[in-house]
Amino acid sequence: MSKSKMSNWSLGLAAAAVALTLSANAFAFDAAALKSAPKVQGVGMNITDAAIKPWNISYFYDGTNLPDGKGTVSAGEKIYQEQCAMCHGDFGEGAHGYPKMVGDPVDQFEASAKAGVDAVSNRGLNNNWGNAPTLMDMIHRHMPFYAPGTLTTDEAYSVTCYVMNLASIPGVGDDFVCDKTSLPKIKMPGEPLYVTNSGPDTANQRCMKDCYKGTPFVVEKAASIGNVSVGKVKAKDTQ
């Protein structure tokens, strides 16, 4: 990364100074961390990349390591209705508590977050997913939930294609073909919202005496909270 690129998102001189310091060490872990590591001989085996390949199944956000093969929206629809809809809903609306594929439009998701109303239960691929290759990774690795990792590469590409189509991801029309070239080019609607954490974000002080004036406003559990089943946990109630 260039210094000028870093300063684009740095706020003010202080942040820019930090960025310059970091750029000096960028792209390298501190090899001194290994100095105290013991020197070991004769334990374990070397292994070839070819032998590792069946396990090397991670597809990076930018498409690195995506496999050969391809899938279509129409093929994906058939697989989805057979193997996915019972949990994720016929139209991607979610079912039985399993995740939605289709959430609020991204601007509505953002507005809900800003308004402090519930945003998280309306998350879907169209508002809270960063990169299409990662969706392929998740589906190929972990789905269907009851038989994880059993889809062929083409089937996984097809389901990836169909659920993006279902969620109206821009560019994924009915004729879209998903493969290792097309997936990295998809712009997921929620991607611009991601920020990276910058460390501790509260600054409480250790006050010991007369820390505030007035009365604490104490809120107890709402009378009708629904199906919270905490009653049975009071096994040790001494009454």
Binding site: F60, Y61, K114, N128, G130, T134, D137, M138, N197
Partner: peptide, 27 residues
């Protein structure tokens, strides 16, 4: 490696939806 994967766990779960509408990763 020299970059994050940005897995399912890092893009959908284990993120924080903040009051400014942004979604915080890597907390």
């Amino acid at each position: 490696v020299d970059k994050p994967l940005v897995t399912y766990q890092e893009t959908k779960h284990y993120i924080e939806v903040l009051p400014n509408g942004m979604v915080r990763q890597y907390d």
